[in-house]
Write a protein that binds this DNA or RNA. Structure first.
Lengths: 208, 208
DNA sequence: TGTACATCAGTGAACGCGCGTTCACTGATGTAC
DNA sequence: TGTACATCAGTGAACGCGCGTTCACTGATGTAC
């Protein structure tokens, strides 16, 4: 009946309910969207009583936070992978932005939860000392593009601007308004690349 | 007791309950945030029974939609005003972006409702034939900056990129992460201008 | 000018619902001796 | 190796809550004659 319940007469103890709850949360998100993501729905999806999650999360918001953290981790992974697939700096930068937006498009409900969570806390959920942050990934790539000839301040501001644009595009790109333009450009990805390419940024700064 | 109820033994008929409900909705948003924006809370705030709004809105989502539409109208107004205060194209463009973000910062709950609504419909709420859209405002201003030397396609993509960046900045700018940078730059507005200035765009395109 | 009547815009009680959380409980597991 | 016992990780019933919406109603307003 439930997705997470495996065959063979499930045991009283679950094994790894925390993990199962996070997976169940994602299943609920995919199937019914962010507004359906209640503690009870997650427990139901995991095939467990409504009180069970309290042995693994202090309360609902802590569960949501864990979901959001996983989402950000996966987003970063998607970005790293995209980066690794290209060698030329310009292509790497473009791929980074496209990967970001495509992740958001592929996981719209998760992406929403991620930023709802971030907004509530005025910060991204802790990556508690991960090796290198997604934001650092952006800065490094932009440095490559500029060939190292850029001040720390410009770099920081440009990275923020890029992040803003990617986030904005993630939220806005599916508006029907843009359909004609996408068709004219030859598809979704061309559209994304087109918009992101129009964030010229450093080139202007350098000769301005 | 309620904000909207005027003195003198309120009459049975309200006069303009629709208007009062929209104002009440905003009051609720400001005081308690988007998650508290229920039909019942709005009715309560307007000093009216829970069933009363149904004479003015088909259901909850139609009320929210009306709130969102008003929000977008006010955002456009703020942008027009900011534009009118500057003459030089570059300053006008900057003022436009700053006005956008500052509106979102000044009305965070309303801004959230506006985009929640837009996302649900995959489009902005109808401006049903307003004179000129906010997006057109952006395109016109960008054309001024470019001195008319720009293709329709570049213009469109640049305008979208600007919109994305403004939206992203609106959602991200209050992260604590940026506090040091803001201080270094001398304040919130300088930060916004700094980020937005790093969307060079057309300059790069022209000599690239 | 008065009156009958339709329509409008409220009331307030009630409906069923799903929610987050708590509680006393119990089955399963692990550990000390 | 066996056993007593503490601890862990579940159950399931119950709590109070606010919600969106419906309903029969009634007071106020406007209009036709």
């Amino acid at each position: 009946m439930t997705t997470a319940a495996v065959a063979e007469s499930k045991p009283y103890h679950h094994g790894d309910l925390r993990r199962a709850l996070l997976d169940a949360a994602e299943a609920v998100l995919v199937r019914e969207g962010p507004s359906a993501l209640s503690l009870r729905a997650v427990a139901r999806e995991a095939g467990v009583s409504p009180a069970a999650p309290y042995h693994h999360f202090k309360d609902k918001s802590e569960l949501l936070r864990a979901v959001a953290m996983e989402g950000f981790a996966r987003l970063k992974l998607a970005m790293s992978s995209a980066l690794a697939r290209e060698t030329a700096p310009e292509e790497r930068r473009s791929a980074l932005g496209v990967a970001y937006v495509e992740f958001a498009q592929a996981n719209p409900a998760l992406y929403r939860v991620m930023y709802d969570c971030a907004r509530n806390a005025d910060q991204m959920p802790d990556e508690h000392g991960e090796d290198v942050s997604a934001f650092q990934l952006v800065k490094d790539t932009l440095t490559e593009v500029a060939g190292g000839q850029v001040s720390e301040l410009d770099l920081e501001l440009t990275a923020i601007a890029s992040w803003c644009a990617a986030h904005g595009l993630a939220e806005i790109s599916k508006f029907e308004k843009f359909k004609p333009l996408k068709d004219a450009l030859g598809g979704e990805r061309a559209f994304l690349q087109g918009v992101l390419a129009h964030l010229g940024v450093m080139a202007q700064r350098k000769d301005g």
